[in-house]
Design a protein around this nucleic acid. Sequence first.
DNA 1: TATTGTTGTCATCAA
DNA 2: GTTTGATGACAACAA
Length: 622
Amino acid sequence: MTRLDRSSHSGGGHAKGSRPLNSLLAGHRLAQPPSAPGSRASVQDIDLIDILWRQDIDLGAGREIFDYSHRQKEQDVDKDLRDGAEQDDTWSGEGAEALARNLLVDGETGESFPAQFPADISSITEAVPSESEPPGLQNHLLSPLLTGTESPFDLEQQWQDLMSIMEMQAMEVNTSTSEILYSAPPGDPLSTNYSLAPNTPINQNVSLHQASLGGCSQDFSLFSPEVESLPVASSSTLLPLVPSNSTSLNSTFGSTNLAGLFFPPQLNGSANDTAGPELPDPLGGLLDEAMLDEISLMDLAIEEGFNPMQASQLEEEFDSDSGLSLDSSHSPSSLSSSEGSSSSSSSSSSSSSSSSSSSASSSASSSFSEEGAVGYSSDSETLDLEEAEGAVGYQPEYSKFCRMSYQDPSQLSCLPYLEHVGHNHTYNMAPSALDSADLPPPSALKKGSKEKQADFLDKQMSRDEHRARAMKIPFTNDKIINLPVEEFNELLSKYQLSEAQLSLIRDIRRRGKNKMAAQNCRKRKLDTILNLERDVEDLQRDKARLLREKVEFLRSLRQMKQKVQSLYQEVFGRLRDENGRPYSPSQYALQYAGDGSVLLIPRTLADQQVRRQERKPKDRRK
DNA sequence: TATTGTTGTCATCAA
DNA sequence: GTTTGATGACAACAA
């Protein structure tokens, strides 16, 4: 008995209406543009969407409707509908903006690896030409070695990046110790990738004196100014890979001059000139670790739900998924925007309502209160008309008239309390619910039975309406609830009301306001949830983008390492000892010095250094 | 019939 | 002290 009006009013109508609302919002299907009001016979999604649109749109007019001083300024329903269309445009604009933002992200990942490293390719290129060579000639070294596979720009870029990496490593070695070289945080993609350097022997204190370059290689100054300051291990047999004073890189690496580039090494080890054609690959470890990194990345991606094989498609997936995500992401924004617009628009005109309600509440709450005020329109079907008719008893015909005409602006204009009803600012009443609830079935209309209408409207009344009717409250619940305090008290003073009536009126007012507050609270909570969902989607999108960038980084690094390997083999294969014989890959290895130079050192020494470098990260890990 | 979503209501707190 | 808004909790109802 506690819920007399459940089935007729709140339970039926609202429940039907609110379900689509939540399902639409939660299901991210709010992309439907507003359309004409749907059929009242069945609850179609399109109709619900339409009404939902209108509900959000209509937030612009709300509580101020109850302000008598501002009623003349009220906009008609058509204006609201136009605003609705504008709201739709706003929504679309936001969606387009989000799309553009996503697309921009896509564009960013096209070439994302750090291409702006200092374009210093002094490591090897300085080792080959004389220091007087103009920098532009450095490219000549690359061109014969790295042709065909990629565009010159990419190759040069990768070379620059690679050399920058090496130089960074060398700088770290020079400045502190080699331990610092691997001290980068593991999370850093660059440092993670570049920390593969342990396999790259960096020999800053090993001189190269067992190999020589023809003509000019004795002079370290030709190699690099820093080389002169390098501490030279007296016992080591090192051969500086000093560039000749040739005037071009092509001549430096040319087949004719290459034999004369190096002095014959005074190798104390047993050179195995009969070594296989395959050159030692000090960079093989780099490649392997790059592969491992990529594999680990893939593992990570798989663990985290991102398929690295599809990493490049993640953004597109997100964008394509934006069909849903955009909806969802825009739902809150649209709500917010509508609220913001409504609050802003109402804040200027809603002073009527009451100083307490309009001034004390924040913009958000004011918007909600407006909506809530309208949302309470379920109780507002009985209006001043009723009071004009004597107001003691409910007049079903008038109520019916009000219900039927709530969307007719012309009729609303003469019914101040109907205006907001006509605006249909209901928070949770679906169109079909409104239609079916507020409009008697056609059959009932045809029958024209006042009893049936009375029964129908009686079912539509809320519990408090029934109570008020039973207690013969001389004014509408809508007034009781929505009048400002002063006007409310003034209204009470006009009538001789019993204590029970006054108590009921206060309860009706309290419950009505609380009902609106609850609706606003729930809507706000829903908005908050949707905003959080949008934030999560944004973060997931960023994560996918970063993952894709990481994959791109690794791919570029792998390519660069492959280039370096080929270049290494190319350079090493062209080295000749004093007798014009090639160096044995099993006995010698090229090593990048800290200053960017390249040294030819015995492989045993190189292996020792490699092992030493490998031990240090492990020790650090311990 | 159980579950889930919606709505109204109450109690409470804060401004 | 009163009014009002916000919110958690609960119950009723509908799908």
